[in-house]
Design a protein around this nucleic acid. Structure first.
Lengths: 137, 137
DNA sequence: CATGGACCCTGTACCAACTACAGGGTCAAC
DNA sequence: GTTGACCCTGTAGTTGGTACAGGGTCCATG
């Protein structure tokens, strides 16, 4: 076994490899209060347990889905309260869905404009370039 | 006439209103060397002429199309050389088009995942929430 | 026991592209 | 002469990290 990963007590580099989160990013999350500060070894190394792995994996998945960090924070807080109703979680997901849909719509408009622009090039000099013209007043 | 805008000699606020670019952003562009520093009045106010209006309007359009600032810089440099061929301009537009298409594809994958996630909510407690489960390891 | 290399620590600066002040000066109107 | 709108510089904050610099720790090998 090359990595002592299952038990409680991995260093930050091992945690990084296990979760696919950068070492610097993990420290950044700790500074931001998104993950709790872990205990330290005698040599001042951070020591993470399985709980940290789960929390960080959760964060990574949420970030991969595009949730901003403060929403990730909210999701984590909700996940920690098993008795509350699911509604708030669903609301956050739906809101993120709409956000993504808005961004897609914006980018599609952009793509159409760029497409039109790209097709205007007739290969002459810049002085008669339709693209530059289209950008000029 | 409420704004002396046509002739040469508007202050930064007037330029901002004419072009739809924020006052702070105009000063930022000047610091970044994207627009040249204009002459000043006796009272140290920036005084812009029609050339500045055109350049800033060009920048705004390019930014609205999502071009990053360094590409805007390149487009401006090309626009200033009327004898060069249009090819480079077209290349920049096509590259930006592809960039936008990549982003759309990424966001569409995200949307599909979020959509699946959002439909998993059965309205129970968080302890049995499928969304939280899906985010957990 | 020393030493090398992989790993860890803190702290700071940097990225894009702005935005938001703070703390002051200018200008025109009333 | 004073108000209020506008302008000036300079600095810090935004988001979500990344990239060092300059040091300390750990462990295996010689």
């Amino acid at each position: 076994m090359s990595e002592k990963s299952a038990g409680p007590g991995r260093t930050i580099g091992t945690l990084a490899r296990e979760t696919g989160v950068n070492v610097e990013t993990i420290r950044f999350y700790e500074r931001e209060g998104i993950i709790p500060a872990p205990p330290r070894t005698a040599g001042n190394y951070r020591l993470y347990g399985p709980g940290h792995v789960r929390r960080l994996a959760f964060i990574r998945r949420a970030r991969d889905l595009g949730f901003p960090l403060d929403v990730v924070r909210a999701l984590l807080a909700l996940a920690d309260q098993p008795d509350r109703l699911c509604g708030e979680v669903d609301d956050l997901v739906v809101e993120q869905l709409h956000e993504v849909e808005r961004k897609i719509a914006d980018l599609q408009r952009l793509r159409d404009e760029l497409d039109r622009l790209a097709h205007q090039c007739r290969g002459g000099r810049i002085s008669e370039c339709r693209i530059i013209e289209a950008l000029s007043p």
